[in-house]
Design a protein around this nucleic acid. Structure first.
Lengths: 232, 232
DNA sequence: CGTAGCCTTGAAGGTGATCAATGTTTGTGG
DNA sequence: CCACAAACATTGATCACCTTCAAGGCTACG
């Protein structure tokens, strides 16, 4: 019956960038031994420091990838949304530990794939590896772009984050972010304090640039945020 | 005669992580059509936005990978030292532009390899790709660790940078960084102002924690810097 | 119904940026 | 080889942005 569930999500998988160029049968083969996991809000699927015995593909919902800094507070390194591959980059090193923790944001699903599967089946397929590399490259460019903003004022950082997330949304037209984000999570992602985030975002709410209800963030005036980024 | 020079550097290449598990003959084959380029101080080998027709392996010296931020000032994304592979991650995308500029720090040498070579010869070798991915993973973890320090005081950021660079040095015992760095470059790498960097580093010089002469930085008391990182 | 997590607002304070001025080293062309 | 320009290093004064601290309200959930 587990197999049935797997069957059902194959078409879901096929639309993801990782499996570009692979047909259903090949994908089924690659996912052998995998299981679909459902995580509840705030549930951890990988814990920093644990031995990395499996990696995952996000199916629905979202996960935040975090590290805890020397000061003790959490830092969000990446928001993984459907199609993202998590922890694949460390699968080749034997006895590797997870370099980050992954925590569900709202109810989410992911495909948990054992490391052995990566070693035997994934690693040997150049096309697949290149697809993963291309996803990784994207995350890398993102991190580099973040670094470009370190000196920028906080308003620009927030604007950049919101626009980036909107960019990844499947239907951007409504301006609703594909993610339920708390102010605290935005703060942890940008390395700022919650209070500062709140001050700026409530200002934008008053100006009707964004609307937020129940952790759902809607960008009303995309132009205003773009202008914020370009200003001065 | 170009071929002779190539021959000569094969053994150099063999010691690099990228070519781990490959013998001289295979490496020679992989480097077909490549050329050894010597860059003078401050010479650019890749320019942001140019069409990415080749990638490179750093042979000696160092290169800084930079982007320019919205404010106009340069941001250093990575210091590439011997063995580092530059721009490989975008070779698979056709018509890709370089996402960064690469500039020599002091006289440096790199092996320039045409994109076609990557497409035909590199891409098809899983082991090679995995080696590259492993290098990339290292840079990625580095960027993530940087992000952990955003909220940390500047002293910790500088300490972290210096210790990281020392860590990559081939002979760390003498405490000399494998790189000639100006204060400005440290600032651009950390997203801080030159003045702040100078204030902190001359303080450390007075306390004899570091010694600098002619852009060469020597860490005298490694422990002091580690303590700086752990403090409070 | 009480706790836990999140949101909000205000006041005070610090870290580091900016500006300005000057000295030093490096590199280039006459 | 000298002169001049460009890039880098240094120091002090001022000020802005954001953090921290404190206190209170809101909502969800066991």
């Amino acid at each position: 019956m587990n197999m049935q569930a797997l069957e059902a999500c194959l078409s879901e998988l096929k639309s993801f960038k990782v499996f570009q160029g692979f047909d259903l049968k090949e994908i089924a083969n690659l996912c052998e031994g995998s299981s679909i996991c459902v995580s509840r809000h705030r549930e951890q699927i990988f814990r920093l420091g644990d031995e990395a015995l499996s990696f995952g593909v996000v199916l629905s919902g979202a996960y935040k990838l975090t590290k805890s800094s020397l000061e003790g507070d959490d830092v969000i390194v990446h928001f993984a949304i459907p199609g993202d591959v998590v922890a694949a980059m460390i699968m080749t090193q034997p006895n590797a530990k997870y370099p980050i923790s992954a925590t569900a944001l709202g109810t989410s699903r992911f495909l948990k794939i054992p490391r052995t599967q990566f070693i035997h089946n994934w690693k040997t397929k150049p096309d697949l590896i290149m697809n993963i590399q291309s996803l990784l490259a994207g995350r890398m460019l993102q991190l580099q772009d973040d670094k470009m903003l370190v000196k920028a004022p906080l308003t620009k950082k927030i604007a950049s984050l919101l626009l980036n997330l909107l960019d990844k949304s499947t239907n951007q037209s409504d301006g609703i972010l594909p993610l339920q984000l708390t102010r605290k999570e935005i703060a942890e992602s940008l390395g700022a304090s919650v209070e500062s985030i709140i001050r700026i975002m409530s200002d934008w709410s008053k100006k009707n640039i964004i609307e937020t209800s129940d952790k759902q963030i809607k960008i009303v005036k995309v132009d205003a945020l773009i202008q914020e980024l370009d200003s001065v």
